[in-house]
Design a protein around this nucleic acid. Structure first.
Lengths: 343, 343
DNA sequence: ATGTGCGCCCAAAACGGTTTCAATCGGATG
DNA sequence: CATCCGATTGAAACCGTTTTGGGCGCACAT
């Protein structure tokens, strides 16, 4: 059942039927109702491929997921971000198209999306410092929103980000207020912009209290259970081990906890942990009571906001790119306590 | 730059240019080279929307992700499955389109995908017992492959699944051989087909040794850290606690471990755990040495296989649907040991 | 010389919608 | 009564490909 068939069945022209269904004002209200009823009755759904060709719009948003050939890490927060963004797309009759490409083909993927025209815009994931994708997308003229920011990029661009710096500053302050002085940072890879900012907040808080940051207490790695475990193991083996950990993710936090347990250290009494909690649906930080004290910010909500922003940008291009900075909550759980008196 | 422009620039008809680029035999080899060179030089990429309309194929595969309105669990294995499938799609010039829809609109989403024609086929995720989606897809004539199986569905249908029953049978046997007699099962939700099969394997192994399954040792819940923790807490509070746990996922396993630690039980000595490990890229079960003894099967590889199967099915429809049963490895880690002598 | 067949290419018709431009009609205006 | 206008509708062009159905020229067999 296509438009032409429906039109003849109604004794109308395809033009009128199309206009009736798309709520154009110039069609008689009676006709419109008749058309809509017939469309429903005959279960007519306009062919998406034809619409896209005719309108020149893809009605789709792209997400390029680079598949790192070496470490092959699929970002764990990705699923939740996608879920949030996807909700918004569905509500607005847009498709979400994911391109999984080897990371050395990422630029080509953006160019292809643009020139083949199968998306109207893209979300940029996991920005790095000086991320070159922003300039690329500007150049090829593909609307986009960055999830995160890219320090060092001078062009203005639209983004949605968590205030990572402030979150980690607060978390560090919280530990300092509890008397901790040797606070370890188990961070993500620091060429990632968010990780750099977190480190910035941590260092800032320490130096504000006259404490020089200790390189031996700073780890930067992929945010996996194992690397959290290893970092903690290494630091705990030191003659002057930390009394508190600041971890970049729930998963690293679990690795740290495993290391602590092997050392017979009781969480919240002998040693403290604060994590950053992306509020992942499959990895809740406890239900009623949080497992870890945490800085929390829902990545799913970030997905919704970014998707909304991008659709808005496509519909009404702005001269000055919109931005949105989300603040993380500090939730107090059972993983933090006063610093033990002796080292 | 579109086909027509390229054609006039070459002094050829669009027909010939199209044929040259698509490697039709009836075009002169010299002409073909000339066309291809020009296409590359002018950076010509055929418009995907036009191709789709003209060919009637969407060159895209759909994945419908129901967004449970109540518990809102985004399946943690989903990201890795998608990554695997996405690799295959990219290699075959297909798009992957994700539809995130409220779960009561899932059927409508499949119908819409079909009638609007924006995908050529779909992957069905998370099949349940008697899953009605299989009949639905048959009815509307949309090619599909199920990731998992649906017991009780009599229609033949294509699927890719892990041998969950055998995996859990083997794991249970392994624990029995170590002398464990009170083995707990911390399972996923048992209306899910995979969970049912796992329970089947577990019960089978127990009864084969004359041990009646104890309902108090069987938990069925969402596979989160918290629910693993709770199940373990509850069971450990019993006067006759288990000496071993069988967990449906890495994440539940971590929750169980947290409970054990609170009870001061040493993993691998006082108590054993075997998990099922989907080999998620962001949640490796250790690197050199496994954290948990586990039944392991890469969900990412399953994604690749399912995608391949679906593309094949679309290109060459089969009368008898292909199926693929993957066997899980049993990898021995440090979380298992002989049953303690006293209860 | 006359078909015949093949190699190569093109004009035009799809594909299924949207959009531009024009037409019709009844009623209001002057 | 002629004209103009707003309300409706339709014919046809268009979006950018693929595909159908020739067409032309040349070699080869008859």
């Amino acid at each position: 059942m296509n438009l032409k068939e429906l039109a003849t069945k109604l004794g109308l022209s395809p033009t009128t039927v199309s206009r009736a269904l798309n709520d154009y004002p110039e069609v008689n209200e009676v006709t419109r109702q008749r058309v809509k009823a017939a469309a429903k009755r005959h279960n007519y759904h306009p062919n998406a491929r034809a619409i896209r060709l005719a309108t020149g719009r893809a009605m789709a948003i792209g997400h390029v997921i680079p598949l790192a050939t070496r470490h092959e890490i699929v970002n764990p927060v990705f699923a939740d971000f996608i879920a949030g963004a996807g909700e918004v797309y569905s509500r607005n009759d847009h498709d979400m198209v994911l391109s999984v490409v080897p990371d050395d083909e990422e630029d080509a993927a953006y160019r292809a999306l643009r020139s083949k025209g199968n998306v109207d815009g893209v979300i940029v994931h996991g920005p790095r410092m000086e991320d070159h994708r922003i300039a690329l997308l500007h150049e090829i003229g593909l609307p986009f929103v960055v999830h995160g920011r890219a320090s060092g990029v001078t062009l203005p661009y639209p983004w949605v980000d968590v205030n990572n710096r402030r979150a980690f500053h607060r978390a560090t302050d919280f530990l300092l207020d509890l008397g901790h002085r040797r606070i370890a940072l188990v961070n993500g890879l620091e060429f990632m912009d968010f990780a750099m900012r977190r480190r910035g907040g941590y260092v800032e808080a320490l130096t504000a209290r006259g404490l020089p940051p200790d390189p031996a207490l700073m780890d930067s790695n992929e945010m996996t259970e194992v690397s959290g475990y290893r970092a903690a193991k290494r630091m705990l083996a030191s003659p002057t081990p930390p009394t508190a950990f600041l971890a970049s993710s729930m998963i690293s936090g679990m690795g740290i906890r495993r290391a602590l347990e092997e050392h017979g250290l009781k969480l919240g009494r002998d040693i403290s942990i604060i994590i950053h909690d992306d509020d992942l649906s499959y990895m809740k930080n406890g239900e009623d009571v949080p497992i870890f004290t945490a800085t929390r910010s829902s990545v799913r909500e970030a997905g919704r906001i970014a998707a909304d922003m991008l659709l808005g940008l496509i519909a009404h291009p702005q001269e000055v790119p919109p931005t949105r900075l989300l603040e993380a909550d500090l939730v107090i759980g059972q993983s933090t306590g006063p610093a033990p008196l002796a080292v």
